[in-house]
Design a protein around this nucleic acid. Sequence first.
DNA 1: CCTATACAGGACCATACAGGTTCTGTATTG
DNA 2: CAATACAGAACCTGTATGGTCCTGTATAGG
Lengths: 170, 170
Amino acid sequence: MIRITRLTDYGIVLLSRFAGAEQGAVLSARELSSETGVPLPTTSKILKTLTRAGLLTSHRGTQGGYSLARPPEEVTVSDVIGALEGPIALTDCSGEADGTCDIELTCPVRTNWQRITDAIREALEAIPLTEMTVSFPFHAGTDGDPDPAVAPATPGRPTTGAALGGGGEA
Amino acid sequence: MIRITRLTDYGIVLLSRFAGAEQGAVLSARELSSETGVPLPTTSKILKTLTRAGLLTSHRGTQGGYSLARPPEEVTVSDVIGALEGPIALTDCSGEADGTCDIELTCPVRTNWQRITDAIREALEAIPLTEMTVSFPFHAGTDGDPDPAVAPATPGRPTTGAALGGGGEA
DNA sequence: CCTATACAGGACCATACAGGTTCTGTATTG
DNA sequence: CAATACAGAACCTGTATGGTCCTGTATAGG
């Protein structure tokens, strides 16, 4: 339902941990797992994938672990999604693959999906990791108040919302 | 991978058929199926769901079929997605459901996902059915040229792209 | 030199869900 | 009364996400 996979979600959480630590810090899979609550094997899998994608650098041996390959400001949400689940495409036909869709020839809405997809892609590319790290105070989770933590938050950087919403707020 | 389901894709194609026909036209599942290439049972299933969601009105008996419940300008892409696959939510925690995510309490990026999701939601709400109907000329599909039909299109209404991209284009 | 640590890279399994079909029922037209 | 067409539910199946495990290999430290 227009959703990212949980692996990606976890991936961003893990990476934001690096963004929160000091520049160049080396964190092991074990540490990250216990700190975030993500199961160790899964954590390991995600970190390995991110390393292969060039977002992290690995260090073997005792005292080994992972460190960011680039400064956190240069890693975007789009990068993480791309690394963990391939290129962003809302529909089969909005990616680079042609001919995947049966009705491609008679489809009147194809081009529009591509435009929408491109727009979302660009928007996600505009959100760096540092932007996701901003910790708002949030309620205890007993689903008491739906909004309070969401809407009024926006301390000083509405960048994230602005990138997508534009003047919208419709 | 941030994608909508094929059912939703088909749903929009089917609905755009109504938008193309004259106001209040009654089209049967059989007609729509043969015109769009979407298998009949699937077409039927989608139309039934859309009817239940209040987007279409059904007419039984001989000469029966479906007609739009609202003028096409008032039906948005977001409506269709909502009808066919529930509320838009990139992550478990960006919807209304709380407690679905194991690491919710320690998750530093939750609020941000909600902002991003809201933004995408609003963007999709801004795209009416009539906007998707605009038929661009497109190539024959033998995956010869990847772009030509895509980029230069944009005849006179960049509304779709503008709604999301804002001033970005980053 | 030897051992423990920690990443590398697979293979592997299980559950869930999307995609699609079929069947029975009901209403409307002629 | 018969044919058409929607209503709705049950059902099947292929795929892929989410997650585990196992075998290597490199590094640090005793």
